[in-house]
Write a protein that binds this DNA or RNA. Structure first.
Lengths: 230, 230
DNA sequence: GGATGCCCATTTGTGCACAAATGGGCTGCG
DNA sequence: CGCAGCCCATTTGTGCACAAATGGGCATCC
């Protein structure tokens, strides 16, 4: 019997997922700012592959609304204005609540540990806020929250919408539409409140807290944008 | 000033969309049965293109969960059992109702005409039911219903889940888990009831009627599957 | 001087040949 | 006779060269 050592060479699918997640994260953390052109050739070179498989990744990102390719011109990171995202945010509110209603599940030991770790990091961040690290912590927290439902299609859709909209938050920070220090405190409260609800086993309340924070975060960005115009 | 005649030659993007929708429809109407292998070379030949752009279409279909590619083996239409679709159906129920709550819009003249046409065809189908034509009418009706909300992300997500699950209905007909003639009558009632709600301008009720029919349809398929086992 | 049309560098899209991977059949050994 | 291992046809995945398309710069003409 032949024992195949696990992934001596990375499979095509794994590599696709890895590169896809990497570029997606760069877009969400504004390493690639909205409007920036992504060179197929440069990216292919960076990841040590040819344009063909890289184009597959870009095509996926395009279907997710994160980039847009134009023949003869280039591939660009999509831009977004807070005013245009109302529809998406309203939908995210509803989906957040669904997480607490549709097949909710309590965290297992591993997930509990991740929640605790995020709480710790959140408190550490209060002393010296850093936009990018904060955004990354926000992503990690979101990816934990989505695991509070067993409904896989709901998870997938929720993730999709999250990655479409999360950049606007970091963008608002850099545009001074919202205050980073305030946001870190709000986030820390959110994490603690949700953990407390989870400790009580009240998954629906945890979902409603998340919903409320998504809504208020949107309102703060909207208000900041309007103030800035005036 | 140069007047560019509109699409003398089809753009790459339009061609992609056209082929994608065509293959998706073939899968949903069971022209390509679950489990069937799709030959990249044959499909590329049929559409008069090379494998490269066709593979792009297949990759999109794979991200939508309609096919699955395996290196060295082939690309296969995904199979699905009614028992595994509970999560997806429960989510579809919620999204259907959201259509009536999140930015609902009354039909314009064109959409009204489409609803009337579908009602007419539905009644014509009562006399001589045909599974494939019925499934097609079902798709058309769904695509009209989704236009009752202005929330574009909600539309997109709803469509995605619909195309993932709609095959199971036609599959249940062929497996005699549900009765085609009964289904045609139920469908005709659904169309009429929803049109009546729309005539009253009651979009939320229209959505709830749709929700109820999705749920009952699922229950009938589930029951049929269980009876068949017994 | 201004506008118009052409040329060309740049970038995405396509076709094709080859690499990688899989499964089935065949062959040879015990 | 059974089974283990190899070979090869088939299919998806990759690399690469070229086609298509775009925009900007430049020359030319009015």
């Amino acid at each position: 019997m032949i024992i195949k050592r696990p992934q001596a060479t990375e499979s095509a699918r794994n590599r696709f997922d890895r590169i896809h997640e990497e570029i997606r994260m760069r877009i969400c953390l504004l390493d690639y700012a909205p409007g920036k052109r992504l060179s197929e050739e440069a990216l292919a070179g960076e990841f040590g592959i040819s344009r063909t498989p890289l184009r597959r990744v870009l095509a996926r990102l395009e279907s997710e609304g994160l980039v847009h390719s134009m023949h003869g011109i280039g591939t660009f990171v999509t831009d977004l204005e807070i005013e245009e995202l109302g529809q998406t945010f309203r939908l995210r509110l509803e989906l957040a609540e669904l997480t607490g209603r549709l097949e909710p599940v309590l965290p297992d030991a591993a997930l509990w540990q991740e929640f605790r770790a995020i709480s710790t990091q959140s408190k550490a961040m209060l002393a010296e806020p850093d936009p990018r690290r904060f955004a990354k912590l926000n992503v990690d927290f979101f990816l934990c929250l989505v695991r509070l439902t067993d409904n896989e299609p709901l998870r997938e859709i929720t993730r999709r919408l999250y990655f479409q909209t999360t950049r606007i938050w970091l963008k608002s920070v850099f545009a001074s539409h919202i205050n980073l220090r305030d946001e870190t405190h709000v986030f820390d409260r959110e994490v603690d409140d949700i953990i407390r609800a989870l400790e009580l086993g009240d998954l629906h309340s945890a979902a409603l807290i998340q919903r409320a924070h998504i809504s208020m975060s949107f309102q703060r960005m909207l208000a900041g944008s309007r103030n800035h115009e005036a």
